[in-house]
């Protein structure tokens, strides 16, 4: 078998994903955060933004960063089926990243939520955007969710009143660690949507263009003293 043919065998079959239409949210500081879908051309900046956080041991940033780094690499190398990545940017700078994938047409698998900039509820807005993508744009019936940090658990499980599918374990489990899963159904989503999901579409071309080329974060509050070296 030739190299190319072998490569074909390594790649999973893919579903066609409808695009996530970009939106913006005016966060508390007054900055406009553009949320848009990422493509393979964004990968180097995405990985560059994540890599310093692999060393941030506080608040579970290390595990979320390390896993997300691997997931994005898997997506880039065609080793994960139906994965997508959304980024939040302010003036083009990455302030947060979320990702996930489709198990099949109906079921979504939420992967990670990484808030780079803190204190502006970036993580909450991006998690909501991810749910919006699965349930409104990809028209799925439910998304499976687990948390790796206590704050994530309380945020998602309690604030969204997720359904506990623990009783179906081990038949039903989440891909992240093979643990018992929770699920956000369309019905539960519709109940909290007004409180959780916001944003304006379409994003005018001038604002949208600020997010064309993603920029690496200059600072990380998670890493005291971190400064990206000036060239």
């Amino acid at each position: 078998m030739g190299k190319e043919e072998l490569e074909k065998k390594l790649r999973p079959p893919l579903l066609e994903l409808k695009d996530y239409p970009a939106k913006y949210i005016t966060v508390a500081s007054g900055d406009k955060m553009v949320v848009r879908q990422c493509t393979h051309k964004d990968v180097s900046v995405l990985l560059g933004a994540i890599i310093p956080l692999i060393g941030a041991t506080k608040d579970f940033y290390d595990i979320v960063a390390a896993r997300m780094y691997a997931e994005i690499l898997g997506w880039y190398r065609y080793r994960v089926a139906n994965e997508y990545v959304l980024a939040g940017t302010i003036d083009g700078e990455i302030v947060g990243i979320v990702n996930g994938r489709l198990v099949d047409k109906d079921i979504g698998m939420s992967y990670h939520t990484l808030a780079v900039r803190r204190g502006l509820r970036i993580g909450a807005h991006l998690f909501a955007a991810k749910m919006e993508y699965h349930l409104e744009y990809l028209k799925q019936s439910e998304v499976w969710i687990v948390a790796e940090s206590p704050i994530g658990f309380r945020r998602w499980m309690i604030e969204y009143s997720l359904e506990n599918r623990g009783d179906k374990f081990p038949k039903v489990y989440h891909e992240l660690g093979g643990v018992p899963t929770y699920a956000l159904t369309k019905k539960l989503y519709d109940k909290v949507k007004d409180q959780k999901v916001t944003g304006t579409r379409p994003v005018d071309s001038k604002l949208l263009s600020t997010a064309d080329t993603l920029k690496l974060p200059e600072e990380y509050v998670q890493i005291p003293g971190f400064r990206r070296s000036k060239k």
Partner: peptide
Amino acid sequence: GPHASVVN
């Protein structure tokens, strides 16, 4: 603004 009730 239009996003205030979710942002705040």
